[in-house]
Amino acid sequence: MATQQSQSIQTLLEAEKEAAKVVQRARQYRVQKLKDARSQATKEIEEYKRLKESEFQAFEASHAGNTQSSQTAVDQETQIKLQEISEAYYANKDQVVAKLLDRVVLVKPELHRNLKKAS
């Protein structure tokens, strides 16, 4: 009976070792599948990035002319406005200086408004 128990224990130990090997293989398989999935996902992400980058480059190239022409138009408008402001300055500067001098030089002495009310 001792040999039968010993043999049963031995069979159980062998079965346990075999089960441990199966579990280990399953873990390795799972780890490998995860690595494969990650590498596949990385490849897909890189491909998607390249696609979107090429779309962006095409969009930017098609609209680059619009920004340059808009900038040219804004620059021309700015030059025109600066010219108008300069002309207005030179046309009115003598009148403005004269008005300022009149205000500074012509002083009308008057009593303070509070002083008038008190008397």
Rank of each mutant, 00 (worst) to 15 (best):
T3K: 15
Q79E: 11
S39K: 15
D94H: 07
T11C: 06
H112K: 15
G65E: 12
T72P: 00
Y48K: 12
R38V: 04
E47K: 15
E47I: 04
L100F: 10
Q32A: 12
Y48S: 07
K43D: 06
E55P: 00
V22D: 01
Y90L: 03
E55F: 05
D102Y: 14
K17Y: 07
Q32D: 02
V23S: 03
Q57R: 15
M1C: 03
Q68P: 00
T11N: 14
A26T: 04
H63G: 01
I9S: 10
S69P: 00
F59R: 05
Q40K: 11
E84P: 01
Q71H: 02
V23N: 10
K99P: 00
N114G: 05
I45A: 13
G65H: 10
Q5F: 09
E84L: 14
E46F: 10
K52D: 01
A91R: 13
V22P: 00
F56A: 13
A73L: 01
K117Y: 04
G65Y: 12
E77W: 02
S6M: 14
A41K: 15
I85V: 08
P109H: 09
V23P: 00
A91P: 00
V104N: 11
H63T: 03
K49S: 02
E14P: 00
F56I: 06
I9R: 15
Y89D: 02
Q57D: 06
V96L: 15
E55R: 15
A58V: 04
S70F: 07
S86G: 03
A20N: 11
E55I: 05
K21L: 08
Q7N: 10
A26D: 02
L34E: 13
N114H: 11
K33H: 04
Y89N: 05
L13P: 00
R113A: 05
A37M: 12
Q40F: 08
F59S: 04
T78P: 00
V97C: 08
N92R: 12
Q5E: 11
R38T: 02
S86E: 10
R113C: 02
A118S: 09
A41G: 05
K81V: 03
H63Y: 09
Q28E: 06
Q32G: 02
Y29G: 01
A91T: 03
Q7Y: 10
H63N: 09
K21Q: 08
Y29I: 01
D94N: 12
E84H: 09
S8E: 13
S8I: 07
H112T: 03
A20S: 07
Q24D: 07
Q24R: 12
Q95P: 00
T42G: 05
E46P: 00
K35Y: 06
Q71M: 13
